[in-house]
């Protein structure tokens, strides 16, 4: 067995509806080793969340899957329901974007966390409750609040509860799907700091999904930039952000206003994000790209190694 914790191999997802077929994810490859944190960044509809859900085999029934996702060498798609149940929450845990809908409104936060523990481990109710209190304490919520309901917490506090619940069984991989998008920036800073600390403490692997490049820069070692269901650039955060090569990554970085330095006119990326029902045959970014040629129209460029820390899928850069 390899030391890879999660391997996503040539993975594609297609959703079929009555009217159309939607190509949400196309030939994606990602590997996560233990203790590693990887950021998945892209705009709306890039397929980020679909990958997260697929990792837990939680895709809806109209999704058809090609390729494979291996967790510790076992395909998540060939697991039985029982195996999936033991994996979800205990080995791979997820933090959701909206902490209010992710929590059950009719149970106290303490009960909800204890429930996670009881689902996976053979412990008494009392013991589970004790551990829930410890977990809440760890994420910075006073123990006395464990009997309160989610609606009594603020957004930031709810997300802390979500984090506590996801860490309840010491998962090996944590998937965070836009965990701070619904939060204010000072609260976001608190949550990111907390995640950073916990990740270092427990050396959990992290798959961070976000559209905010700044969050990736703060929290991750590696970054994969997604566009229209494909990964177009991949590498260490330092390498990709300081030396972006793909026209889309460059465009994205130039489109963001900066907090420091000179205020230059923003460079908008022309055109619209590719329609996943009607993707271009060749490079998915080709219709919006300024550097493309005929080859880009016909063939999808494959990932090319620039150096050990940097991979890119583009014909124009070589």
């Amino acid at each position: 067995m390899s030391d890879k914790l999660l391997e996503i191999k040539d993975f594609s997802v297609k959703f079929s509806t009555e009217y159309a077929e939607v190509f949400a994810v196309n030939h994606v490859n990602i590997e996560i080793s233990s203790g590693e944190s990887i950021g998945l960044v892209g705009e709306t509809g890039a397929g980020k969340t679909t990958i997260a859900l697929a990792t837990l085999n939680l895709l809806s029934k109209n999704a058809s899957v090609k390729g494979d996702i291996l967790f510790k060498g076992n395909s998540v798609f060939s697991m039985s329901d029982k195996e999936l149940r033991t994996m979800r929450g205990a080995k791979i845990a997820m933090i959701f974007q909206n902490p209010l809908t992710a929590l059950n409104p009719v149970f106290t936060v303490g009960e909800q966390i204890a429930m996670v523990i009881r689902a996976h481990e053979n412990v008494s109710r009392k013991e589970a409750m004790e551990r829930a209190k410890e977990l809440l304490n760890m994420v910075g919520i006073e123990k006395r609040r464990f009997k309160e309901y989610p609606n009594q917490f603020s957004g930031g506090m709810r997300q802390r509860v979500g984090i506590a619940a996801s860490l309840a069984c010491n998962p090996e991989l944590l998937i965070a799907d836009e965990p701070t998008t619904a939060l204010d920036v000072t609260i976001q800073a608190q949550i990111l700091e907390l995640m950073k600390q916990l990740q270092q403490k427990y050396s959990t692997s992290l798959l961070m999904i976000t559209h905010n490049l700044g969050i990736i820069a703060e929290l991750c070692q590696k970054v994969a930039v997604m566009y229209a269901g494909t990964i177009i650039e991949y590498g260490t955060v330092k390498e990709v952000f300081s030396n972006p090569l793909h026209p889309y990554t460059k465009g994205l970085l130039n489109a963001i206003p900066k907090l420091e330095g000179e205020r230059k006119r923003l460079e908008a990326i022309p055109g619209l994000i590719a329609d996943p029902q009607n993707l271009p045959v060749g490079c998915k970014f080709e219709p919006r790209c300024t550097k493309c040629d005929d080859r880009c129209k016909e063939f999808m460029p494959s990932m090319v190694k620039i150096n050990d820390n940097h991979y890119i899928a583009c014909y124009a850069v070589n």
Binding site: T186, A189, E193, L213, F241, K258, L259, E260
Partner: peptide, 24 residues
């Protein structure tokens, strides 16, 4: 507020950040 914004200009680790306690 300014120190709380995650930016791509700096690569994490050494950045000093003033963390506010609690909520608004």
């Amino acid at each position: 507020l300014l120190s709380a914004v995650p930016t791509i200009e700096k690569f994490g680790e050494n950045k000093t950040r003033i963390l506010l306690q609690g909520d608004v």
